[in-house]
Design a protein around this nucleic acid. Structure first.
Length: 383
RNA sequence: GGAGGGGUUCCCGAGCGGCCAAAGGGAGCAGACUGUAAAUCUGCCGGCGGAGCCUACGGAGGUUCGAAUCCUCCCCCCUCCA
């Protein structure tokens, strides 16, 4: 079974839609949140736990797995699914984000990117062709084109030059793609310039991809700018393909983006924040190390039915965290991923019922009421 | 009884005449985290409303323009010898 996407229903009041992605390793209900498993593992969790919590698809990373343990090794051991014991869908990022996040360790040419390994300093070359071929070795269900994640801020000239490079690379990725078994997504760049984004969407559609992603958002720009970009350009994405907003985001970001027609999300927030002691709940931000939880017998979130909340008190979780125990990261990650999964379920149900606008409004009102609900407290500190 | 060594801010521990409210750890208390170089990073950490003052380096005196740092006595602790 190869890749396909179908829309189950559209919300009558906005662009939100519900759909199903078919992949060789199973189907995925959208809108979907994909936990990030950069190095062939969702940090702190076994694949069985990830699955049980409700994840249907996870991420892997081309750059990291190429450097260690090496894509040839993974291919020879039966591919990434088998290697990491995750028989369900996998999306691999291309290394484009590392072009951005490891900026001090790389050099970009038209041909590709020369990286200096963050592990041992050795030099490596990544091109669009190599990125696709590595992802083919890994055997992921969805491959991403190599792109240049345009940093913020960038002038319109810089963003345009960067976009042109990304588009050239997108063509080369498409040409390199060998089999239709593995889907290939194109990435929309263009910085914070709607006109560039529009052009990117049109050009990528001309090339023709299985799905389209927004990249280069949530790279430090104010929240309202990201929202403006989405509101002005997301509706231009082809309706029959999945829309993926890369690296996003907070619960608020996700609810907002779904309203504008985004189907797929990934973000390190729930996993990284869990390891750093920040737990998501429906009415407050729980920083589990805080002294006030020292003897709190209640669960992290009374309304949560995850394994952690069913079995452990805030006092115990605080103790584990403060003591530096490994179990703290496990239990915290279980909770946060569960929180995100439940959020996506609620979103899908609201769309199925045709009341996403109402859901969105309620959510945003509640968010305003608890401004600390979002991890950065909304955008208030910017003013 | 004799000979050495030592008592520093919550703890450990540097400092050994001014640049010392006192290095560095730890603990404690906060903050950050958006396609993961992250079990990471940042800030605060004697008191009072500022670059100012007060209280602080076992205790009490003293030397000095100036002492955690030098001197005297006292009180504790440790090691070795009898």
């Amino acid at each position: 079974m190869s890749f396909s996407f179908s829309v189950l229903n559209k919300d009558p009041g906005c662009l939100a839609r519900r759909g199903i992605i078919q992949t060789p390793h199973g189907e995925v209900k959208t809108p979907v949140f994909m936990p990030v498993g950069t190095q062939g593992t969702v940090k702190a969790l076994t694949p069985e736990a990830v699955r049980q919590i409700g994840a249907e698809i996870i991420l892997g990373n081309t750059y990291h797995l190429y450097l260690r343990p090496g894509h040839d090794l993974i291919r020879n051991l039966g591919g990434l699914h088998r290697f990491m014991n995750w028989p369900h869908p996998i999306l691999t990022d291309s290394g484009g984000f590392q072009v951005y996040s490891l900026a001090k360790l790389r050099k970009i040419t038209d041909d590709g990117v020369i990286f200096q390994s963050h592990i041992d300093g050795s030099k490596h070359f990544l091109s669009p062709e190599i990125a696709v071929s590595i992802q083919e070795s890994l055997g992921s269900d969805i491959m991403m084109c190599l792109d240049e994640c345009t940093p913020y801020p960038a002038t319109s000239a810089e963003a345009e030059r960067s976009l042109d490079l990304t588009l050239t690379w997108a063509r080369r990725c498409k040409t390199t793609q060998k089999s239709r078994e593995q889907a290939l997504f194109g990435i929309v760049q263009g910085g914070m310039y709607p006109a560039l984004r529009r052009r990117a969407i049109a050009d990528l559609q001309d090339i023709g991809f299985d799905g389209y992603a927004f990249g280069g958002l949530s790279v430090g720009e104010p929240k309202d700018i990201m929202q403006e970009i989405l509101a002005e350009t997301a509706h231009l994405l082809p309706e029959t393909s999945p829309h993926y907003l890369m690296g996003v985001g907070t619960p608020e970001d996700i609810v907002f983006a779904v309203y504008h027609g985004i189907d797929m999300f990934d973000c390190v927030i729930p996993t990284r924040c869990a390891r750093n002691g920040l737990l998501f709940t429906n009415d407050e931000k729980v920083v589990i190390k805080h002294a006030r939880y020292r003897d709190d017998p209640g669960p992290v979130d009374r309304t949560c039915d995850c394994y952690t909340c069913r079995n452990y008190s805030r006092a115990y979780l605080r103790h584990l965290y403060v003591s530096g125990e490994i179990l703290a990261m496990v239990l915290n990650t279980v909770h946060n991923i569960h929180f995100y999964m439940r959020l996506m379920e609620d979103i899908r149900r609201a769309i199925a019922d045709g009341r996403y606008t109402e859901f969105n409004n309620n959510f945003m009102n509640r968010h305003r009421e608890y401004s600390h609900w979002d991890i950065d407290g909304g955008n208030e500190k910017e003013e």
